[in-house]
């Protein structure tokens, strides 16, 4: 079993790392979108959800224990996902820049034969990474995007995430950035979810349509769900607590 630890050496092994960490991250974005749907049920339910995340697995697990396990796993996944992508991209670029027409261009003319989504993975990945940083600073730490006193930090076990979301998304620029990123996330998920099975060797002619369908489903669910939040706030469907 220790052979697993040698995976990082080969190109295919690095892709396996990318697929496995991607699997964890896909699970997270689906869960994240599903959890946030509770904002449609009003401030009590949504704030209770935020508090409930801290008590996940109670009474077997203590206060915030599982949450921290999840945070560590997610952070490690993001780091490994980006590390493997960077290593693989650098190796590929070394190859394709050689014999090129110019320093940056490989062919004088090159026509794409397949879909668009796969080509956005690297650029989209960078956009999503920058978004994650902004998102954490915005809705988790409340250090950007709020006027003084607008962001309510948790106090004494009470969470005010509902009002934070409502005030945060009332800024059309910030909402626009969220919606823009979700489009890239959609492409990333559409290619990534199918690609994950391909890389792990779980794809074949029989399953490939099913897996493409699953990828469309995951991408659409996450994108439509997530985009609906800023739109709902700006449209007043999710308004300030009475």
């Amino acid at each position: 079993m220790t052979g697993v630890l040698t995976l990082y050496r080969t190109s295919v092994g690095k892709k396996v790392i990318m697929a496995l960490t991607g699997f964890i991250l896909v699970g997270f974005v689906v869960f994240h979108m599903y959890g946030n749907l509770k904002m449609y049920q009003g401030p009590e339910v949504f704030n209770a959800y935020a508090a409930g995340l801290r008590e996940l697995g109670y009474p077997v697990f203590g206060h915030e224990h599982l949450l921290w396990v999840a945070r560590v796993i997610l952070l490690a996944s993001v780091v490994l996902h980006i590390w493997s992508a960077t290593m693989l991209t650098m190796q590929s670029q070394k190859n394709t820049f050689a014999n090129g027409v110019s320093g940056m261009k490989r062919y004088g003319e090159k026509k794409r034969q397949t879909g668009y989504a796969a080509y956005t993975m690297r650029f989209g990945g960078i956009v999503i990474f920058l978004f994650i940083i902004y998102h954490l600073l915005h809705l988790t730490f409340g250090v950007v995007g709020y006027g003084p006193g607008e962001f309510k930090h948790p106090h004494g076990g009470e969470f005010e995430v509902y009002s934070n979301v409502v005030i945060g998304f009332q800024n059309p620029l910030i909402s626009g950035f969220y919606i823009f990123t979700m489009i890239f996330l959609g492409f990333h998920l559409y290619h990534g979810v199918w690609s994950m099975f391909q890389t792990l060797g779980l794809n074949n002619a029989m399953y490939t349509r099913l897996l493409r369908g699953l990828a469309v489903l995951v991408a659409l669910a996450v994108v439509i769900g997530n985009i609906s939040f800023p739109i709902a706030v700006m449209a007043g469907i999710v308004g300030p607590a009475a």
Partner: peptide, 15 residues
Amino acid sequence: QQDLEGFGNCTNIGE
């Protein structure tokens, strides 16, 4: 051997 020759990495694009 493929890695040693300097080939790039598959990103499952399908070209």
